[in-house]
C-alpha cells in the first residue's frame, strides 16, 4: 500500500535526520581545506594530527576524562548504600515514611534546568573558596551524574527478590557480607550501565561546566565552545570526531552490557 511505503520512507528520513549532525562532523574532519565545508574537499588526516599534537586540546581532553572518572567514582560510592536503603529499607523521618520523598528529591536534578545548578554551584564554590579548582569541577559534576547512577542502582536492587538476601542471612552471612557477596554481584550490570552513563553525561556536559571553568582548567566541551567563537577551522571537527568515537565506544559498551530495557528504566 502506498501509505505504508510513504510511512516507511518517512521513518528512514527521520532516522537520517537524527544522525545527520554526526555524519556532517565526521565527514568534515577529513577535509584538506582551511575552512569548514560540506561535502569536504579531498581527504587528509592533517586536522587530526594537529589536534593530537596540541597540548591545550589534549589537556582539555584528559581533564574531561579525569573529571568524569572521579565524579563517577564518588557517585558510585555514595549511591550504592543510598540505593540499597531506598530500595530495600523503610526510611522514616519523625515516624513518617520518607522513602518516596527522598527518591523524588535525589532524582529531581534530571528535570530541574541544569543552568540553575551551573550558576548555583558557581556561587557555592566561591563561598567555599573552591571556585576554579579541580575539586570544584568535580562537585559540580556530581549533581549531573549521581541521579543516573542512583536510578539504575535502585532499579537493579529492586529487581532482586528479598528471599535471596534472607536466605544468605539465614545461612549465617552478616548483612555486610550478604551485600558484597550476594546483592552487589546480582546488581552488577545495572551498576556498570549507570556508571558508564554517568561518565558520558559528565564528559559531554556544557551547561554546568561553563559556569565553573576558568582559563587553565577548561573541560573539552567548554574549550570547543570557546574555540568555536574564535577560529572555527576544521580542527574543531577533528576534536568532535574523536569525541564521537570515545562516546560511541562507551555507549556500545553499555549497550552490550544491558540492552535497551534497563538503559531507560525509570
Amino acid at each position: 500500500m502506498i501509505l505504508d511505503r510513504l510511512y516507511k520512507l518517512y521513518v528512514y528520513v527521520m532516522y537520517f535526520f537524527i544522525l545527520i549532525p554526526l555524519i556532517i562532523i565526521v565527514g568534515t574532519s577529513f577535509t584538506t581545506s582551511q575552512y569548514v565545508t560540506f561535502p569536504p574537499e579531498g581527504f587528509s588526516l592533517k586536522w587530526f594530527v594537529r589536534v593530537l599534537t596540541s597540548y591545550s586540546w589534549m589537556f582539555s581532553f584528559f581533564l574531561s576524562a579525569v573529571i568524569a572518572l572521579v565524579s563517577m567514582g564518588i557517585a558510585i560510592l555514595v549511591s550504592l548504600p543510598a540505593a540499597k536503603a531506598l530500595a530495600k529499607h523503610r526510611v522514616t523521618f519523625l515516624g513518617r515514611d520518607v522513602g518516596v520523598t527522598l527518591r523524588t528529591l535525589f532524582l529531581s536534578p534530571i528535570v530541574i534546568p541544569m543552568i540553575v545548578f551551573g550558576i548555583g554551584i558557581a556561587i557555592t564554590l566561591q563561598t567555599l573558596g573552591l571556585y576554579g579548582t579541580f575539586p570544584g569541577l568535580v562537585i559540580g559534576h556530581l549533581i549531573i551524574v549521581v541521579p543516573y547512577v542512583l536510578r539504575s542502582l535502585i532499579v537493579s536492587f529492586e529487581g532482586i527478590p528479598d528471599s535471596v538476601e534472607e536466605a544468605a542471612i539465614t545461612l549465617g552471612a552478616t548483612p555486610i557480607k550478604t551485600f558484597f557477596k550476594v546483592t552487589l554481584p546480582m546488581a552488577k550490570s545495572g551498576l556498570i550501565a549507570g556508571s558508564l552513563f554517568a561518565f558520558i553525561w559528565s564528559f559531554e556536559n556544557v551547561t554546568v561546566s561553563i559556569f565553573l571553568a576558568v582559563p587553565g582548567l577548561t573541560p573539552l566541551p567548554i574549550r570547543m565552545w570557546g574555540y568555536l567563537s574564535e577560529f572555527a577551522d576544521p580542527s574543531l571537527c577533528a576534536v568532535a570526531t574523536i569525541f564521537i568515537v570515545v562516546a560511541f565506544g562507551v555507549f556500545l559498551a553499555i549497550y552490550r552490557k544491558m540492552g535497551k530495557a534497563s538503559m531507560f528504566a525509570v
Binding site: I18, L22, I25, E204, L220, P221, A240, F243, I244, A247
Partner: peptide, 14 residues
Amino acid sequence: SPMFVSLVVRGYAW
C-alpha cells in the same frame, strides 16, 4: 546515539 555527543558539536554541525 546523538545524545552522547556534546551539544556544542551538534550545534556546530547545524
